[in-house]
Amino acid sequence: MPIIVNLDVMMARRKMSLNELSEKVGLTLSNLSILKTGKAKAIRFSTLEAVCKALDCQPADIFEFVEKENK
């Protein structure tokens, strides 16, 4: 997928563990893991809002668009 999730980078910058983020955001560890590994197909605005609030960042800090090269 051309959308890259940089959640782990932001977590490292804020020195926040997955458990801590999970508690703050109110998401299960498995759902956070799905998001972190880029397996998620969609994200709710409410989740995005909670993640941005917990990590004190903007949505653009978490997501990045990288165009795939045409083979």
Binding site: L27, N31, L35, A40, K41, A42, I43
Partner: peptide, 8 residues
């Protein structure tokens, strides 16, 4: 359903 399961 798969899409719904992978929506966080």
């Amino acid at each position: 359903q798969k899409e719904n399961e992978l929506t966080v």
